[in-house]
């Protein structure tokens, strides 16, 4: 029961802290924000890894591998895209590459 209370507390606290932090993100950065939060929600990869710490049947192994692969896709993909996008934002104070299409050149 104490566990349940603790988990609810963690959920409520994180939602609250997340809410405060994210309300302050300017609309300018909402797209990179969303792609980074995608990468963060790929924290499910921890759960997928933990599946492999306990013996599983072959069917469960396949499902576990799917969980691992999709989470890894989001984790890497999310952070890389966010890096590319945030790298595109320039001001005239910084040297901007002539090739505007390249993100993280």
């Amino acid at each position: 029961m104490a566990d349940l209370a603790l988990m609810l507390l963690v959920f409520a606290l994180s939602f609250g802290v997340g809410y405060v932090l994210i309300s302050r993100v300017p609309p300018l950065l909402h797209t990179p924000l969303m792609s980074m939060t995608n990468a963060i929600s790929a924290v499910t990869i921890l759960g997928a890894i933990l599946l492999f710490a306990v013996a599983m049947g072959p069917g469960a192994k396949v499902v576990g591998a799917v969980a691992l692969a999709t989470a890894a896709f989001n984790l890497v993909g999310g952070f890389v895209i966010t890096d590319r996008m945030t790298g595109l934002f320039k001001t005239h104070h910084e040297p901007a590459g002539n090739d505007g299409r390249q993100g993280n050149a």
Partner: peptide, 9 residues
Amino acid sequence: ACGATVAAS
């Protein structure tokens, strides 16, 4: 924690 933060976002 991460899931809740993303849900908030």
